[in-house]
Design a protein around this nucleic acid. Structure first.
Length: 421
RNA sequence: GGAGAGGUGGCCGAGUGGUUGAAGGCGCACGCCUGGAAAGUGUGUAUAGGCAACCCCUAUCCAGGGUUCGAAUCCCUGCCUCUCCGCCA
């Protein structure tokens, strides 16, 4: 959420920022409601002040045994006026809050302006594509051949958009989780295990609600949501919290499943494991002092890249254009992995700085050096998404004889296995 | 799921209709005291909103309604916590 005062003082800036993100929100309505709200507050507070004063006098008179009937009668009138104004205020406040929840975070000035992903900028590439002078099978073919992946079984269980890993495939999945968690915790991230079902308030905190309501699974019987990313519970761990300065920065990590309805995504990257309703992810979250957040964004990208470097997988990093930024993000880097079987880059991580947008929504603050309350900046990055990592590994590490070499960093987690055959 | 108890400031804990934003204590900050420290002592110590304003005003004692001239205090609803029973990985 943006600060109302900021919107009031910079309406054009907000309009431009939202437009650059292709977001629709009614800033003029907000300004109008804000004006109405302050008018009402002004009036009602004056009346409440009067009433408070009179109340004291009534109390005094009653104690002294005098009659206060005249004052009480007068205050009854004032009370009615107050009730009326309070009602108006509640209504305006409700509308204002609703409008405010639809205002996206503004893109950072360094984010390339552009209306969609075509305007994203590749900032660097790492590693070399493996030399494979044979036809590299896409993961769904090699996965089936080596009995690692059973897509029909998943369909039978849950319908379209799920996968079943078996044998060495499932083992590889678990190895990756352990490898990643071990790396991140060694680098100072504290590990958490968190709920995968959360409340609407929690979903609001990180900005999934209201905008992404249709993209999430909702449990109607209990009015709860399945998390679309570990970011949600992990960041909201700090909902309604007041942090002391020395508690920052917060560096945390968790392994969680992610559930996404992918409504409207039919037909895009639907083969194999690439776009599914449930996948798993190791997620990193940072909560930092505002002045550090852009520096920390670079640290976080580096942390996610470290996983890929350890796995020796070629990737590229791109900076998202304003139009491709998510609702809550001010700046975002995507990590994309080359997948030779599929023949394209796969988005495997997205690392974002939300500045104070999420902190304001979830009412997380810290006491700064001047003992003043301030909203910290929140960041997160996938480190990494398993359902894209596994395809990349089985394709990049595929050998001419149809076997798959196990990346050396994973062997200790795979009982020493060097190959999957 | 059944029965009961309870939710007050950073923490503990008073308070059942009238200067209570809230006694008292702890903690914390600053000062005094001290050679230095402890003890002692004094002062201060919430957040948000209105406003040009750190003056002032308003709101906030889990949340939302209600009763009343006036609610932390009374009534209703919801949420959460604890205890006992049941169930269970």
């Amino acid at each position: 959420m943006l600060d109302l005062k900021f919107i009031r003082e910079n309406p054009e800036l907000v309009k431009t920022g939202a437009a650059n993100k292709n977001e629709k929100c009614d800033i003029d309505l907000i300004l109008k409601l804000d004006g109405e709200r302050r008018d009402i507050i002004h009036k009602v507070e004056q009346l409440k002040g009067e009433r408070n004063k009179a109340s004291g006098e009534i109390a005094k008179k009653k104690k002294a045994g005098e009659s206060a009937d005249a004052e009480i009668a007068a205050m009854r009138q004032v009370g009615e006026q107050i009730a009326g104004l309070d009602n108006d205020l509640r209504e305006v406040d409700g509308k204002l809050h609703e409008a405010l929840t639809w205002v996206p975070n503004l893109p950072h000035e360094s984010a390339p302006v552009g209306k969609d992903e075509a305007a994203n900028k590749v900032v660097r590439e790492w590693g070399e594509k493996p030399k494979q002078d044979f036809k590299v099978l896409p993961h769904w073919e090699i996965g089936e051949k080596l009995d690692l992946l059973d897509l029909p079984a998943a369909t039978a269980l849950s319908g379209n958009g799920f996968y079943v890993l078996k044998g060495a495939g499932a083992q590889l999945h678990r190895a990756l989780i352990n490898y990643m968690l071990d790396m991140h915790t060694s680098d100072g991230f504290q590990e958490f295990n968190v709920p995968h079902i959360v409340s609407g308030e929690t979903m609001f905190g990180t900005g999934q609600l209201p905008k992404l309501a249709d993209d999430m699974y909702r449990i109607e019987s209990d009015d709860l949501y399945l998390i679309p990313t570990g970011e949600v519970p992990l960041t909201n761990l700090f909902k309604n919290r007041i942090l002391e300065l020395d508690e920052l920065p917060v560096n945390i990590v968790a392994y969680t499943p992610c559930f996404r309805r992918e409504a409207g995504a039919a037909g895009k990257d639907t083969r194999g494991m690439l776009r599914v309703h449930q996948f798993h992810k190791v997620e990193l979250v940072k909560i930092v002092r505002p002045e550090d957040s852009y520096n920390e964004l670079e640290n976080l990208v580096a942390q996610c890249e470290k996983v890929l470097q350890g796995l020796e997988l070629p990737y590229r990093v791109s900076e998202l254009a304003t139009g491709d930024l998510s609702f809550a993000a001010a700046k975002c880097y995507d990590l994309e992995l080359w997948a030779p079987g599929v023949g394209s880059y796969l988005e495997i991580s997205s690392v974002s700085n939300f500045e104070s947008f999420q902190a304001r929504r979830m009412k997380c603050r810290f006491r700064n050096a001047d003992k003043k309350m301030e909203h910290p900046h929140t960041l997160n990055g996938s480190g990494l998404a398993l359902a894209r990592l596994i395809p990349a590994i089985v394709e990049n590490y595929q050998n001419a004889d149809g076997t798959i070499t196990v990346p050396s960093v994973l062997r200790p987690y795979m009982k020493g296995a060097e190959k999957i055959s």
